[in-house]
């Protein structure tokens, strides 16, 4: 997004001038709540339910961090941010961390002075077409009209993909996902393209989801992850290792149900180190020894969170795919707790 680069530059200027306070961990603990930036609403990732409680896959990361740091997964003040306001909100200290399906890119990491602490969802841009169109591969889309959100990286990826494959297309620029759904259903465009998680959620909301197919090609890499401000490495470590503990917990078979029991001590030395029954890992983070236990209890390990919010049993219905553990052929690979 071009706008975000502009605001990001302002961010950097502001940071240099303001030198935001470094000890976020102390601030959070003194305040007693974690200020977590989320989207204003994205199916499966963050949305308030009927009681006003935020739910979703990104939200779960915030809750896990709050549980690890403050001992209460509900001690989170969610700050809804838009694509434009998210980076300034983080840079100015309005929020302590941002968990808003943000793609980890060079510019955001280096130029905007943020620190991506890991990846909680590997996404990629894909195409959705009506089944009637009879298209089975994105290579057959020559001459198609494509609904595309303006000002996003998906727009650029789309242009690249069609140029590289020497195909023509007619873009139909639209502003929001909601508008895109209406245009696509009304037949204004043959193809709708956005991140595949978004496509799946959109398709799930249709009256007859099976009338639409998501084409197998993924034309971009969109690694989405939580991020914090540059320059406060202690806080960055806390968020990074909270995320790692969720991923590692799935790998090692620690779940929300059995974590209490496993925290007593197991045969696996790595589980013991992570859950604090041996070693001093918690203290090194500036937390107590039960931090990971609480993070996992907050909503479960990575696999449980995935299944609960966006997995195949939910209306969003995403397969694990790239987001499986490396042992299952995915890309999730937690660093060792040692």
């Amino acid at each position: 997004m071009k706008k975000s680069v502009l605001f990001g530059t302002l961010t950097a200027a502001g940071l240099a001038a303001g030198a935001a306070s470094a000890a976020t961990l102390d601030d959070v603990q003194a305040r007693g709540t974690l200020n977590c930036g989320v989207t204003t609403g994205l199916v499966g990732f963050a949305a308030p339910d009927a009681d006003g409680e935020w739910q979703g896959f990104d939200v779960a990361v915030c809750r896990a961090v709050a549980a690890a740091v403050l001992g209460d997964p509900m001690a989170v003040e969610f700050v809804p941010t838009t694509g434009q306001t998210r980076f300034t909100a983080l840079a100015s200290g309005e929020i302590d961390m941002l968990a808003r399906n943000t793609t980890w890119t060079f510019t955001r990491d280096v130029d905007l002075k943020f620190e991506f602490v890991g990846i909680n969802y590997y996404d990629g841009q894909a195409f959705m077409v009506p089944r009637d169109l009879g298209v089975s591969s994105a290579m057959d889309l020559d001459g198609a009209t494509v609904c595309i959100q303006t000002g996003t990286t998906t727009e650029l990826n789309l242009a690249d993909f069609f140029r590289v494959n020497d195909m023509e297309y007619e873009p139909l620029p639209i502003e929001t996902n909601a508008e895109a759904q209406q245009q696509y259903l009304a037949g204004a465009c043959d193809v709708y393209t956005t991140d595949s998680s978004g496509l799946a959620a959109t398709r799930a909301s249709f009256e007859n989801p099976s009338d639409h197919v998501i084409l197998p090609e993924t034309v971009s890499k969109e690694p989405l992850g939580p991020l914090v401000r540059h320059g406060d490495n202690e806080w960055g470590d806390v968020v990074r290792w909270t995320l790692m503990s969720l991923i590692a917990a799935e790998e090692m078979g620690v779940t929300a149900d059995n974590v209490e029991e496993m925290a007593e001590g197991t045969d696996d030395p790595e589980i013991n180190r992570m859950l604090g029954s041996s070693g001093e890992l918690g203290a090194k983070l500036g937390l107590d020894s039960d931090w990971a236990v609480r993070a996992i209890q907050a909503g479960g390990n990575y696999g449980e969170l995935f299944a609960k919010h966006i997995g195949e049993e939910t209306p969003v219905g995403l397969a694990r795919g790239l987001n499986a553990q490396y042992t299952d052929g995915g890309l999730l690979y937690a660093m060792p707790f040692r």
């Binding site: 204003t40 609403g41 949305a47 739910q55 434009q84 799930a204 249709f206």
Partner: peptide, 26 residues
């Protein structure tokens, strides 16, 4: 104010649509 992330009625429609129950309602 929806554009700066405040949840006014229009902002809330987005948030409500973002739940799996009500996705697709306008």
């Amino acid at each position: 104010v929806v554009f700066i992330g405040l949840l006014d009625p229009i902002g809330l429609t987005n948030a409500i649509r973002a739940t799996t129950e009500w996705n697709g309602i306008y």
